[in-house]
């Protein structure tokens, strides 16, 4: 008895220690970045491990936030993330709802077509040509429309909708609701957990979307945060490489931009996380 309790306790202690270390290891880089962004030029360049800013200064933030492009990029990223997420959720839900209806003509063929996109994609250049001929290049639509419906999310949504008893819909139609009304006032509210999950996935994806932004956007007025971040980092490296006249440390400027660009997502995450936990388990067990 005693031995078992002791073993259990060591296991527990080891577990806690291990997990604590793991979270420290993941937390430290972020913390380090915050410290660098608040350090003076000399402090940031001295390198090495440190916990607190060396020579506290807000210069890097001042210079990053005073650039007009960061606010433009912020605006663009928010537009893409919010509008893109809403479109994505809405159209994924309508697709899933329709494909769940056995009575829909051609439902099998359509499901097949949707699934087909999970396995095969056009590749970068054909997709680019398509987007270009649709006239979407150099607009923010290029980041939202091509990925508006994802086959994977449709399947997740479908399997959740299947858990809603048909009787609910039947009774609604008995009361005189048309299909649109049923979808918007009954089905969608019932799908909240899965909607939150998909919205979070999509929102994070759109916020971090670098490749599409790089390929489709040319005008600086349309740049999103990841793209601008990359340009700022490259610009700072260019300045250091050529040993030219700059006013603050490259390291701090890069760190400050990184922090500025991840704050919104960090702020949203905790509130959606409870749905996230619930949502990812959806459809895993069926009765």
């Amino acid at each position: 008895m005693i031995q078992k309790g002791w073993g259990e306790r060591t296991f527990e202690a080891g577990n806690i220690l291990f997990l604590a270390l793991l979270s420290l290891v993941t937390l430290y880089p972020l913390w380090h970045e915050i410290s660098i962004s608040l350090s003076s030029a000399a402090g940031a360049m001295r390198g090495g491990l440190f916990l607190f800013p060396r020579g506290f200064t807000l210069d890097a933030y001042k210079s990053v936030l005073s650039s007009s492009f960061i606010w433009l990029a912020y605006r663009n990223s928010i537009i893409v993330a919010v509008a893109g997420t809403i479109l994505h959720v809405l159209f994924t839900a309508t697709t899933a709802y329709a494909l769940n209806k056995r009575s829909l003509p051609g439902v099998k063929a359509m499901t097949l077509l949707v699934l087909f996109t999970m396995i095969f994609s056009g590749g970068m250049i054909p997709t680019y040509l398509l987007v270009k001929t649709l006239g979407l290049t150099n607009t923010l639509w290029a980041l939202m429309l091509p990925g508006m419906i994802s086959a994977f999310n449709v399947i997740v949504m479908q399997s959740f909708m299947r858990t809603i008893p048909d009787e609910v819909e039947e009774s609604a139609s008995m009361d005189g609701a048309n299909p649109l009304r049923i979808f918007f006032t009954i089905i969608l509210p019932l799908c909240k957990p899965v909607i939150a999950t998909i919205a979070l996935w999509e929102c994070v994806g759109l916020w971090n979307n670098f490749m599409q932004a790089l390929i489709y956007l040319n005008d600086k007025e349309l740049f999103t945060l990841p793209l601008l971040l990359k340009e700022i980092i490259a610009g700072q490296q260019l300045a250091t490489d050529t040993g030219q006249f700059t006013t603050f440390a490259a390291e701090s400027a890069i760190a400050a931009t990184v922090i500025v660009s991840i704050v919104p997502i960090l702020a949203v995450y905790p509130f959606l996380q409870k749905y996230f936990m619930k949502g990812t388990m959806l459809g895993s067990v069926k009765s």
Binding site: S40, A41, A42, M45, R46, T240, G243, Q244, T246
Partner: peptide
Amino acid sequence: GDAFGVNAAGGGYYTSLLKV
């Protein structure tokens, strides 16, 4: 190093070294 390394105002390691 580079000849620009001796530029105290260059913003490189020499500038930082002088700050320290």
